[in-house]
């Protein structure tokens, strides 16, 4: 992107600044999984900064099994017309035609997601080929930088979706933050080998080393179920959170959604988090990740 714009130049869409800048606007916020226009409205009323439109929340994908794919366009359009906040939707990893369809529907962000069944076990989609920005999951810094190198404009730590268990979200976010902190201490000579170890482009590794953070917004996802979970991820360095099954698989979704929004904004104020945590009804039951077989771990998808 050239930095000298003249006034008679045509406006430019789909630039890196516009794509990454969109994610900057979501910071400090909660993005909620919804499966119907009614749920989308509940999320918007609760203060969500965006909704993720999908056919089944991850907990149900887990339960039902089978191949999980992009949602029905009618259902996505129904959600787009129900709310004024941004609408995201998921494509399978490497399924660039699903991504083309989502772009044509006018979604505001595409999540190339491990929660759906991967369509390509080697390649992710070329995200530079799209005007619509992409968010991708990562379990470590190298994976995050590979996704950014492919054009991702936002990263979310993966966690383990549909479990209601925050342990993997913590593991992945800590991993990413630790690796960034380590890079910060490297001198120029060490960055080449670091890039090789991370299996990521040298330029991006150098940029992270200089910035002390990713060059794009970093959210956390996969297992957040309570206001305290959301605040924990924020205190660990996430700039916002995705909440999937945690809201609409709970006893009182509207109340829990609003409570998670409050705790995300005042993540460093235990008194407010305590108040937000009162009388929320049943949380989702949850799954212990250490009893989850390797083959059922979504975080292992993506390369």
């Amino acid at each position: 992107m050239s930095s000298t714009l003249s006034e008679n130049q045509a406006p430019e869409t789909g630039t890196a600044r516009v794509k990454r800048g969109m994610a900057e606007q979501l910071k400090g916020g909660v993005i909620m999984d919804v499966v119907t226009p009614e749920q989308a409205k509940i999320a918007e009323d609760a203060g969500a900064v965006a909704v993720m439109a999908l056919e089944r929340v991850p907990a149900d994908i887990r339960k039902d099994g089978g191949v999980a794919r992009m949602s029905d366009p009618d259902m996505i359009e129904g959600i787009i017309s129900a709310v004024s906040i941004p609408v995201m939707a998921k494509s399978r990893i490497g399924h660039f035609v699903e991504a083309q369809v989502l772009q044509s529907l006018g979604v505001d962000y595409i999540d190339e997601s491990e929660v759906l069944t991967p369509a390509d076990e080697v390649n992710h989609s070329d995200k530079f080929a799209f005007t619509t920005p992409f968010v991708c999951g990562a379990t470590n810094l190298g994976e995050a930088l590979r996704r950014i190198a492919e054009g991702a404009a936002m990263i979310r730590s993966k966690g383990e979706a549909g479990t209601g268990n925050v342990v993997e979200a913590v593991r992945h976010l800590r991993q990413i933050k630790n690796e960034i902190a380590r890079l910060r201490g490297y001198d120029n000579n060490e960055l080449y080998a670091a890039a090789k170890d991370l299996r990521a482009p040298y330029e991006l590794v150098k940029e992270v080393s200089e910035l002390g953070r990713l060059p794009v917004v970093l959210f956390s996802a996969g297992g957040v179920a309570t206001p305290a979970d959301a605040a924990l991820m924020r205190q660990l360095g996430a700039e916002g959170v995705f909440v999937g099954s945690g809201i609409f698989k709970s006893g009182d979704p509207a109340k829990r959604a609003a409570a998670i929004v409050k705790a995300t904004t005042f993540y460093d104020d235990p008194k407010i988090i305590a108040d937000a945590s009162r009388n929320l009804g049943e949380a989702m039951v949850g799954i212990n990740c250490d009893t989850l077989p390797e083959t059922e771990r979504y975080a292992n998808r993506g390369w």
Partner: peptide
């Protein structure tokens, strides 16, 4: 929407 987001002088 986001697809129409743009940069201009």
């Amino acid at each position: 929407r986001q697809n129409e987001s743009f940069e201009a002088a």
